[in-house]
Amino acid sequence: MIKGEFMNESMLGKVAVVTGAGGGIGRDIALQLAQAGARVVVNDIGVSLSGEGSDAGPAAAVVAEIRTAGGEAAVNTDSIATREGAQRLIQQAVDSFGRIDCVVNNAGILRDRYFHKMSEEEWDAVMKVHLYGSFYTSRAAAGLFKEQGGGSFVHMTSTSGLVGNRAQANYAAAKMGIVGLSRTIAIDMQRSGVRSNCIAPFAWGRMVASVPITTDAQRLAAQRKQQLMTSAKVAPLAVFLASDLAADVNGQVFAVRGNEIMLMSQPRPVKSVHQSEGWTVQSIAEHALPAVRSALTPLEETADVFNWPPV
């Protein structure tokens, strides 16, 4: 176990897998899981934001940090965008540490493009890492969780899907798919003591830093976000959800923005209208739409909804 000022034992005796843990949010989650007593498999294939290249160095560096501090960790460089890679990753956790208790699905890439210009390759690449990757790793661990009567999934979603951002149809679709995946895992596996939750992180990392800055106002805002919205701020919630302290938290979506933790809403009926004789196109236009118009969701982006400075 890592010894230090902020040591806790919420993950003592547990084994965790963190994908995309060579840097950014994944790295901080891996470090804080180890600090909480977990043995950690650090997965990262060391690619660029666009998914190019391969380098075992980032994952190895995180493992070295954990070991230097007195923790236990192992390097994994398999691609979770394939079923075989995800299966090898989960099997390595069992082979290295004898069990698995938590999977943090954090790995991701970006291929931003306005929808009308997006290629099939750009769509597929993002889907395979984010959505398929979350499915493959979760599915590979699910049987083990069921056998041992417990386990926790922590998935990374995004306000890009929950709210909306331009030029990210692939990313938004994948991230909303992860919300549905997580919710259904929670429902399907609750009787086996398995939990599944999502985090939408606001953190200054490679992905956020890659967004173009064109004005002084954007530059000042970016500097403030870089100072306050660090990846280390996201990690405590991930460790909490991974641990038994969150035994009664299942199927939820949270957001972390600086020092704020938010519970996000999930789709439920807002308003309904009824007409005993049924509806026609004309009656919908004349009666149904006016009745619900005030509750229509504005066409906003993430920055419009989260329009206060991070704290």
Score class of each variant (00 low, 15 high):
residue 115 F to Y: 11
residue 26 G to T: 02
residue 96 S to Q: 12
residue 49 L to K: 03
residue 36 A to N: 06
residue 54 S to M: 01
residue 190 Q to C: 14
residue 18 V to E: 01
residue 249 V to T: 11
residue 69 A to K: 09
residue 274 H to K: 07
residue 221 A to D: 15
residue 190 Q to M: 13
residue 268 R to S: 15
residue 61 A to R: 09
residue 125 A to W: 01
residue 89 L to A: 04
residue 252 Q to P: 12
residue 165 N to G: 07
residue 40 V to F: 00
residue 92 Q to T: 13
residue 62 V to W: 01
residue 43 N to R: 01
residue 281 V to N: 10
residue 117 K to C: 10
residue 22 G to M: 05
residue 118 M to W: 04
residue 14 K to L: 12
residue 150 G to V: 05
residue 192 S to R: 12
residue 127 M to S: 12
residue 253 V to E: 01
residue 213 I to D: 00
residue 81 A to H: 04
residue 59 A to C: 06
residue 180 G to K: 00
residue 109 I to C: 03
residue 231 S to T: 15
residue 180 G to T: 04
residue 49 L to F: 05
residue 171 Y to W: 06
residue 96 S to E: 11
residue 182 S to L: 05
residue 82 T to H: 01
residue 282 Q to C: 09
residue 266 Q to D: 08
residue 160 S to L: 09
residue 144 L to Y: 07
residue 211 V to F: 14
residue 85 G to K: 00
residue 199 I to C: 02
residue 69 A to F: 02
residue 291 A to Q: 07
residue 88 R to C: 05
residue 225 K to W: 13
residue 107 A to R: 07
residue 186 A to V: 11
residue 198 C to D: 07
residue 298 P to D: 10
residue 33 L to H: 10
residue 79 S to T: 10
residue 222 A to P: 00
residue 6 F to P: 02
residue 241 L to G: 02
residue 191 R to G: 15
residue 198 C to E: 00
residue 70 G to K: 05
residue 227 Q to C: 13
residue 117 K to E: 09
residue 231 S to C: 15
residue 197 N to A: 07
residue 160 S to W: 10
residue 253 V to M: 08
residue 203 A to L: 01
residue 204 W to M: 09
residue 63 V to R: 03
residue 209 A to I: 12
residue 63 V to N: 02
residue 311 V to T: 14
residue 137 T to N: 00
residue 119 S to L: 11
residue 78 D to W: 02
residue 220 L to I: 14
residue 83 R to M: 03
residue 160 S to F: 10
residue 289 L to F: 06
residue 5 E to S: 14
residue 170 N to H: 11
residue 274 H to N: 13
residue 240 F to W: 09
residue 51 G to V: 10
residue 110 L to I: 13
residue 197 N to R: 04
residue 50 S to Y: 15
residue 140 A to E: 00
residue 127 M to K: 00
residue 285 A to M: 04
residue 209 A to S: 15
residue 16 A to K: 02
residue 136 Y to W: 02
residue 186 A to L: 08
residue 218 Q to R: 01
residue 91 Q to A: 15
residue 6 F to H: 09
residue 218 Q to M: 06
residue 205 G to L: 04
residue 52 E to K: 15
residue 260 E to C: 10
residue 66 I to C: 09
residue 48 S to K: 01
residue 233 K to R: 11
residue 273 V to N: 11
residue 141 A to Y: 03
residue 203 A to K: 03
residue 15 V to K: 03
residue 265 S to I: 13
residue 235 A to D: 05
residue 55 D to K: 00
residue 296 L to E: 11
residue 223 Q to V: 14
residue 290 P to K: 04
residue 156 M to Q: 06
residue 274 H to Y: 09
residue 134 S to W: 06
residue 115 F to W: 07
residue 35 Q to D: 15
residue 274 H to P: 06
residue 97 F to Q: 07
residue 84 E to L: 06
residue 178 I to E: 03
residue 74 A to C: 11
residue 135 F to P: 09
residue 179 V to C: 01
residue 100 I to K: 05
residue 311 V to E: 12
residue 288 A to E: 09
residue 119 S to A: 13
